[in-house]
Structure formats: C-alpha cells, structure tokens
Design a protein around this nucleic acid. Structure first.
Lengths: 215, 215, 215, 215
DNA sequence: CATGAATGAGGTTTCATTCAT
DNA sequence: GATGAATGAAACCTCATTCAT
C-alpha cells in the first residue's frame, strides 16, 4: 500500500531524526558532566557522539539550546522517578526516603542527568534565570511530602515543615556535590543510604527516639 | 643604620607589592564569585581592580596562577576562622556549631572566599586535582571535633564519628551551594542557624532527645 | 504514431520540469531582490519555493548557476519589452520614452527582474565578468534609437549620440537604484514619468525649446 | 617636566591608536569598495592593513561597527567637499556644478568613500536602516541649492524645485553606479563633466536656450 | 613598574553541497 | 524525482598572553 509506504518512510525518517537527537543529547549530557559549560566545546560533544559539529547544530541548535535541552530532560527524568516512587504503596516517610534513593540511583547511572546537575550548579551567565529554580521546586515537593506524612502519621507532628524541607534539600544537594567531586556520583547511592538514619531521626515520630542514627 | 634604611625601603616596596597583590586578589575573587572559571576574563578582573591587564600579569601571573592563589587564600582564611573558634572556651559541641557559624559569616561577607568556593565546586580541567581535596580536609576536621566531643561528653557516645562528619560536611556544602545560587551567600548564616537544631539533635547526648529540632 | 506518443510524454515531463524550474527561478529572483548574493541562502530560496534544498540543486544546480540563470532570464524579459515597444507605430522619440516606461513597469512588477537588477549591481566576485556588460548593451540600444530618431526627425540633429545615450542610461540606472532603496521599485514608474520632460528637453527638436521640463 | 612627559606619552599612545584606527578604516573602505559587505572577510581587511584580525577587532569592533564607521566617515568627507565648494564665491548654478565635480573627484580618488558608496547601495540586512537615508539628505541639499539659485537668478524661475533635485540626484547616482562597475570610479569625473551641459540646460535661464547640451 | 596595543590560536556558528533513502 | 540528514570548510569573534614604550 502506498499510504503505508509513505507513512513508513516518514516514520522511518522521523524515527532516525529522533534517535539521533536522543543520542546527541546523551553525549552532550556526558560532556557537561565532566566539563563546565564554558569549557565544554561543541567539538567534544560531536566527538563523543561520533558526528560532525554541523550535524550537532542541525539537530540541537545553539550551545545554549543544547544546555537548556539537557536541563529540561534531566528535570523530566527526575520527575519520572518521583512519580514512580509516589505510586508505590508505602508510608509517606518511606516514600520520602524512596525518592532520595531513587534519585541517587538515577544520578549515579545516567550521565545526562549528571550533566544537568553540573549545569544547574554553575553560574553560567548565558543560561542563568531558570537554572536555579528547579531547586525551589524540589523544596516544594519535599514540603508537600512532609506535610502528607504528618497527615498519615508517618512523620512527627511537631515539626516545621518548611524548615525540614529545606534541610532535606540541603542534605541531598550536598551529597550530590560531594559525590560528584569525589567519584563522578558513583558513591551517591551509598551516601544517601548513610543519611537514612539522620532523616528518620529528623522526621520519624518520637517513640524510640532517633537512636537509629547512631551506631 | 643604613642597612635598616635600605631594608625598610625594600620592605616598603615589598609591602606595596603585597598590598597591590592583595587588592588584585580580592578583585579576582569577586569575579570568580559571579563567573565560572572559563567565563571569567582577565579583563574583567583587571577592570574590577582598576588596573591594566599587563599589571595583572606582573602581580599575579597566569590565569591558573590567579585561581590557585585565590583558592589558597580562601583556605587560609577559613583556617583562620577555625583556629579562632577553637581557641574559645566552650564545649566541643558548641565549638562545632561555632565553626559553622563562623564560616558562614566569613563566606557571606568575603567575596574572595566566595570566589574560592565557586572555583572549588567546578570541574575545571585546568585546575582540578587539588580542587576537591579541601573538602576531605574539612571532613577530617569535623571527625576530629566529633571525637573530641565524645571525650569531653558534649557529644553522645553511640555515634559513628566518620559518618557524622560526612553528614555535617554534606549539610554545610549543600547550604553553601544553595545560598550561592539563591542570593550570593547572603542567606548562608541564616541557613546555618536553621540547621543548629538538627545538628544538636544528631550530636547532643540523649537527655532531652532531639526535640529541639522541631517547632 | 508511437514515436509521437513517446515524444509527447517526454515533452510532458520536460514541460513539468520546465514549469518547476520556472517557479523556482521566480523564488530565487525574489530572494535575490531583497538579499545580497552572499547573504541569500539556498535555504531561503527553497523555503520561498516550498521545496527541499535537494530538489533545488536538482533543478537549478549551483548557487552561481542559479544567479546566472536569474540574470539571463532578466535580460530576456527586458529584451521582450524592448522588441514589443519597438513594434508599435510611433515616432522614435515616443518609442524611446515608451521603452523607459515599459521597463519601469516590468521592474516594478516582476520580482525576478528585481533580483536580476540587484545581482547585476553587486560586485560579487563569484559572478562578475558579464555582470556589467548588460549595461553596455543598453547604452548601445539607446544610441541606436537616438540615431534612428535623428533620421525620422523626432530627435534634434545637433546632438552627440553617444553622449545622449550615456546620459539616458545614467538617468535610468539612477532611478532604478533609488527606487530599489526607497520602496522596492514600486515608485520606479512614477520616477521615470517625472523624467519624461527632461528627456524630451534633451532630445526633442528646438521648436518650443525645452520649456516642457519646467513647471 | 613630568607633566609634559606624561602628556606627551598619553598623546603619543592616543596618537598611535588614532592613526592605526584611521589606517584600518582606509583599508576597510578599500575592501568594501571591491567586495560586497557579506563577501568581504575581516581577514581581507586585516591583510590589506597588514595587521591581525585581533587588532582589527580591538580598534574597530564588529564587522557591522566597521561598516557603520566607514559609512559615517564617507558622509563626513562628502560633507566637507560640500561646505568647501559652497564657500567659493560663484553663482549658485556654478556651485551646483562645482559640488558635482568636487564629489566626483573625491569619489574617484578616495577608496574609503568608494567603500561607503558600495555599502550604501547594498541591501545588507545587517546594516540597513540608515543606509538609504543619506540619499534623501542629498536630495534635500540639491533642493536647497536650486531654490537659492532661483533667488540669485542663476537658475530659471519656472522650474519644479523638488523635481529638479530628484533628477539631479538620479543622474549623479546613475553615474556613480556605472562608473563603479566600469572602472572603479576612475571615469566618474569625466562622466560628470559630460553631464554639465544637460544640467545647465535643465537649470539655466532661457536666454540662449539649452543649446550647450548639444554638439 | 605600568600601560595597552598586538597577536594568534581556538571556539561557535553558518551554509553550500552531497547522498542514502 | 524528492527529501532532509550529514558534512566540513570557512567565517566571525574572543581572549590569554606578550612586549615595546
């Protein structure tokens, strides 16, 4: 059938284009993960992807366009982890910890996400503006979860929700940064795990006190 | 004495040189505080200091030299805060918190230190290597303090020293990074203060439990 | 006849090709009319024609090929106007003025001709050579017409034919250029009309003197 | 005297800078005189001036900056010719013709002015806006002169001032363009001289009719 | 010591042209 | 025939570094 042929061709070409774009993005993320925005050369990205700089421009546009797309994709993937964890049946406190673990796992295994993190931590004049806003969003997410936990009883009542959210965020960001410097995020899941006790101590109801945090 | 006179003159010249160098370093730090290493132009630093690029080279050398000197000076100043706090008569736990407060104050008020922080958080290929080691040193400092606290009884016994040191470091780094993004570190002292309760909850002996952390 | 059929088919195909080529040429002319040769991108032409760059090459070849074809077509169309006007029954002086009017009308209404004008007025290293020769041809045409006018009495005798031809050409070129800058040649017919009196004053026999040129 | 020395040095440096800038501008004008804006490479200009592209940027800035400066300098030089001619004691009609001659001489001998002309005749998207306005100014100048001529009697009364100014402009622009194509403006003074009779025929009072225009 | 003009390598971006589909 | 992804050369621009004054 001609129609089918045409469709197939179109899908084939689109498919190729989309795939190439995805591959290029991964390469870009990997480069931004190990070089600062200004230091990363488009040539590096093109080499990493095995294509020419001309094609790079064709598919992803500007250097700033590339960075923005990496950032957007990173947010998307982190958002996916969030929703996936939230769908699990568990106490809210367990979900909070699950989110940390899930994100740590994602960061440790996905170079594009690593690149996004590096980008969002830099003061790149060319990108700025929305670079820092994601962190505010994550604080909001944390606050919502803590409040939910208070409703279902898995988080103690006498806690300042905003403060707790801020501290959780600082802790995670600190772990991210240090893991990034130390071993390219390979140790992030471990670092997060080592923080479980502190988090439970901070959030869990008083019963047994926060003795878990301690050896 | 003639010799003394000559020495005095020399010292005067050296002095002048040192002062000029110090002023240039401050300018460099301020620039690195708002621009990434690769984005910062030597012209920017020269402009900020009100001198010519030629003089900049004469006094501070290479771009990498400049960055290294900024980093070294930052470490020096942070070290000064540390020793100063440790000399105070107080329980070790109070000293730990005092160090955090002192460093936060320093970071918030000293552009050169801000520049050093930015530099040490970047994956600048040209600098690297020793960039990340300072953080390990601070972890070691924290570990030593926690252990001291256990000896004088201001820190609970049943704690994993290394783990606690790591967590303290992560918390401080996270606060640093987020304060840097949010308002150029102006909010860092406040952020650190808001963490006091969590730290006491983590470290203080069990008596009243960690109820302080909560509102 | 089979042969005829084949021929017809071929002619049909050729016909289609020729039509497509013509449409593409119009698009090319329109682009060259508003962008300099070097600034005009083949992509612009393809977009204007609503086809792909690949097809553009198939039909029109090189960028230089395209420009040359536009120039040739422009000359062709201007030549058509010339022969058409010359076939009218009228005094030679009226024909001269008629040629000016006809060309002005053509330029104002035909984007391809506009493109050709722009191309022939540029010092495009890639094209050059023959770009300027057309103007010499038009001077020759003018000279021939002025001489003819002297023979049929519609042009005064005591005139330097070559000089008059040169001046007529300068006047027309000047009007073209200024109309092009001012409003994309929309005002060219008007500009030429406003020159009628000057031309008649220059060429017409002495009877009433050149009082017509004046208000 | 120290002050004198400092002043001398400053003036020396400034002097050098200004001279270098002037030399570069001349080179830029020469290049724009033979290549279209888009075709002219900064390398060409730097080569013509015997310096590096870096210095070119240092002294003249952007490519657009360079073009704008060339255009401004061209206008300035043409304005100088205008005022110089107008200061001569002569009838207004003679001044009008004197302006044409003076400008023709300038154009023929000054490569920077030639470059300015080429630039102002191109539809360079990057420059546009003020590129075409100079011509309107010259029409205004012509109109003023023609009106002045009517007052002192050197120009006939029964003439449409605006129309005459427009025609004079067209004639000069046409001569410019054709002389540029033919022999890089070397023939422009001659071309303008050959137009003297036509101009006098157009503007001079009726007495002897415009018989001068004719051989 | 200080200045700022000069350099040149290197980065980003553009675009004519080709070719597999 | 038609498409558009791919290429690579070349253009513009930036900036660390040097050096004559």
């Amino acid at each position: 059938m001609v129609v089918a042929g045409v469709n197939g061709e179109l899908r084939g070409k689109q498919q190729r284009g989309v795939e190439a774009q995805r591959a290029l993005l991964e390469a870009a993320g990997a480069v931004f993960a190990r070089l600062s925005y200004a230091e990363a050369r488009l040539q590096d990205i093109a080499d990493e992807a095995g294509i020419s700089t001309g094609s790079l421009f064709f598919h992803l546009g500007n250097k700033t366009d590339i960075a923005h797309t990496v950032l957007a994709t990173q947010q998307e993937r982190m958002g996916l982890v969030l929703t996936e964890v939230l769908e699990r049946g568990a106490s809210t406190l367990d979900k909070i910890i699950g989110v940390f673990d899930g994100l740590a796992e994602l960061v440790a295994s996905d170079p594009l996400v690593q690149g996004g993190i590096r980008l969002s931590l830099q003061p790149a004049t060319e990108l700025d503006v929305e670079a820092s806003t994601p962190y505010q969003e994550w604080v909001a997410v944390a606050a919502r979860l803590v409040a939910d936990g208070q409703k279902d009883g898995s988080v103690r009542d006498d806690i300042d929700v905003a403060l707790a959210a801020e501290l959780l965020n600082e802790l995670f960001v600190g772990a991210q940064v240090l893991a990034g410097l130390e071993d390219s995020w390979q140790s992030l899941p471990l670092r997060v795990q080592r923080g479980h006790r502190l988090i439970r101590g901070l959030l869990a109801p008083q019963r047994a006190a926060s003795s878990e945090t301690h050896s």
